[in-house]
Design a protein around this nucleic acid. Structure first.
Lengths: 262, 262
DNA sequence: CGTCAGGTTGATGCCATTCAACTTAGGTGG
DNA sequence: CCACCTAAGTTGAATGGCATCAACCTGACG
């Protein structure tokens, strides 16, 4: 499978062969593996590196003083964990591994070089930061307006589409290596209620979820149940002068579902 | 009152006199005024300008297909409305004026020049974009974990502190030129319930709110009721080599409250 | 002095939480 | 290979925070 970061950035600009080699080199020098539940960066510190996820899942999370806390974002292969550290003084939240994670550490000085002397790469990195912000806005809307059921549908749609852009789906399936407790933290629901929503989703045959594998029999149906509008993911950017514009269809993916469709 | 953008950016870097002049010029060429309820940018379009708020309040908002919608952010003087348009193809949400707003339009080409050829300015603008993202994360946490009451406290704390960094507070007071309906849209509550929370806040003497003026008798008490941790606003950045580091105290602002303190 | 936006109040109901138990699956050591 | 252990998932019943529906009040303005 291609390098997830390059794959992701190529959504935004066509990267030259030089740029690609540079990215590969930069992200292969300080690679380390960490286990589930370990922290990648913690609230308060300002590490000297920017971290990129090469494989595995992580999450941004933040706690209130009294212990309540939430997952604010899922981080997938190709995602940067702590762009904040490039310009801000301290982390205002934590990033933790949900599974075993392979991590590339990019020293700040190197990262600065990328941002200052490689316009194409810089543009793509900032684009992806803007999209992360758009995702965060959509999560805000989620919590504010969607029902528990819609919220869960929406989250699953988003994860599936994001995984697909980095080549981590197989047909209508993908890995979902997280517990229901984590999905609950991300949707702002209790574990108990999330479980019930998930069962409704299964009963309606909108998803099949077994042994950490998610299958979406009919993505369009799930999307409409979620009131999902993929615009916020900006999947259609396809860097100017790109010659692969029509490569990935966004919506047309339904392997015929054989169950009832709500 | 000083230029709100310059005032805001000076949190992050000391800007040279040249940089300041440049910013002043760039933000004074396409100034226009719009009335409350008018849109500044709308979902779907890609205007040729980046918009900056010089005075007045605006909000980011997003709707679901069935009409439900939410306010995702408040935009105050010094805030950019649509940085998205600098790198992304289309707006995935709208920005609308809440009051009469004075707006500076910065042509894309000019903005690009700022970003590419004026490192200090670019760094400050991106820093402020990262902080906007941090604010969005905090709003996510708000909706996910804080109670209605805490949420309202938190919003008022945030607005007050943000207004203070651009010099729009007077002592423990500031303008709050929005209706309860808008506060409800921003906190994910119904108008009715927001009204009740506000009354509780008044009864506890945590805020005084009359004729669009908000007074916070004791900010520390309000902050603790909100479980407010100002770290996410990164108010302490005070650009390296800044000589005004100790200028603005963050927490020490309590005019003695004369009411009961929870 | 009528009108309308903004604000306030009461009654009722539901979505999601809470508490508490139970089941299942996966892993580990005897 | 079974006994045990723990994490993960499931189910039931009761409670409550916030929504909903529906009035009513208030002040600003023409």
């Amino acid at each position: 499978m291609a390098h997830p970061l390059i794959r992701k950035l190529e959504q935004f600009t066509r990267l030259s062969a030089d740029d690609q080699r540079l990215l590969e080199r930069v992200t292969s020098e300080h690679v380390r593996r960490i286990g589930p539940r370990e922290d990648i960066v913690s609230e308060g510190d300002e590490p000297g590196e920017i971290h990129l996820i090469l494989s595995g899942w992580a999450c941004r999370s933040k706690q209130l003083e009294d212990g309540r806390g939430a997952i604010l974002a899922f981080l997938l292969p190709g995602d940067l964990c702590d762009l904040d550290n490039f310009l801000l003084r301290t982390m205002d939240h934590s990033v933790g591994a949900l599974t075993a994670v392979t991590l590339a550490g990019i020293p700040r000085s190197l990262f600065e070089d990328l941002m200052l002397n490689h316009a194409r790469i810089a543009q793509a990195l900032w684009s992806s930061a803007l999209i992360d912000a758009a995702i965060q806005r959509e999560w805000t809307l989620n919590l504010s307006q969607r029902t528990a059921y819609e919220r869960l549908c929406h989250l699953l749609c988003e994860l599936f589409l994001r995984l697909r852009t980095v080549g981590l789906t197989q047909g209508s399936s993908c890995e979902l290596p997280v517990t229901q407790a984590k999905l609950a933290e991300a949707t702002g629901l209790t574990l108990v209620h999330l479980n019930r929503m998930l069962q409704e989703l299964r009963a309606a045959n909108l998803v099949v979820l077994k042994s950490k594998t998610l299958t979406i029999p009919n993505l369009e149906v799930l999307m409409s149940a979620a009131l999902f509008n993929p615009a916020y993911l900006h999947l259609d950017q396809a860097g100017e002068a790109s010659d692969t514009a029509a490569a990935v269809p966004i919506l047309a993916l339904d392997e015929r579902s054989d169950g009832l469709q709500l």
